[in-house]
């Protein structure tokens, strides 16, 4: 369903030196409702890989396909691709403090206003934040903020969820709640790609890939 073929990417470090990040990297996530965890040390390119999958980074060599069709590198085309198919959960929640939880979730919605509000409320209920609609992000805990960010990514009902360290700042109980939520989404047919440092999170995914030596290597599934 979503594939990367022969990806090559070089970045320029702040000191001016070039560094090859990916070389002939390939990736495929085919089965509906499947999930994959991408592990790797800091600086190995996990977030960049996720940005390429989201179409936020189009400066690479190789081919990015969705349902077999190669995606254009044009910004507008990739933005449409994200709007239509991708839900992206950022590492730092990225909530706007000057508006309510509901308004933050509505930023990800499309369509008629009343229907959007209803769906946003549904997803807030799904992430366990019923009654939080009017609250400001500044009064939320880290786990609550993360769940608002998840609700925002889900409200457009994407086929693929890309999550960058979604539980990095959460305690174990909250992490468990988020992982349970992800399992619920998978049961609904969503595909998940989760970038994480946590082996515990990785174990909840159907497959684990290690980003090392500029390419992805499958890890044996522990469960």
């Amino acid at each position: 369903m979503i594939t990367l073929e022969h990806i090559g990417k070089t970045i320029t470090e702040p000191n001016g030196t070039a560094r090859v990040l990916f070389e002939d990297l390939s990736f495929a996530l085919v089965e509906p409702g499947s999930s994959v965890a991408v592990l790797g040390r800091s600086g190995s390119g996990k977030t960049t890989l996720l940005r390429i999958l989201a179409g936020l980074d189009t400066r690479f060599e190789g081919t990015h396909r969705y349902h077999g069709a190669a995606l254009s590198r044009r910004y507008e085309d990739m933005a449409r691709h994200r709007r239509d198919h991708i839900g992206f959960i950022t590492q730092h929640y990225d909530l706007l403090g000057d508006r309510s939880v509901l308004s933050n979730v509505l930023m990800g919605a499309r369509g008629r206003r009343s229907a959007e509000r209803r769906r946003a409320s549904e997803y807030l209920e799904l992430v366990g934040l019923t009654g939080f609609e009017r609250k400001r992000p500044s009064v939320l805990s880290g786990g609550e903020a993360q769940r608002v960010a998840i609700a925002r990514a889900l409200v457009s009902e994407p086929a693929v969820i890309l999550a960058d360290e979604p539980t990095g700042a959460l305690d174990e109980d909250t992490e468990e709640a988020v992982l349970t939520l992800f399992r619920t989404l998978q049961d609904r047919g969503c595909q998940l790609v989760i970038v994480t440092h946590s082996e515990r999170v990785a174990r909840h995914c159907d497959a684990q890939l290690l980003l090392t030596d500029r390419a992805l290597t499958p890890l044996p599934t522990p469960r």
Binding site: I11, T12, R51, D57
Partner: peptide, 9 residues
Amino acid sequence: ATDTPQRGS
């Protein structure tokens, strides 16, 4: 195919 690292990337 070459660029500078993105924020937090």
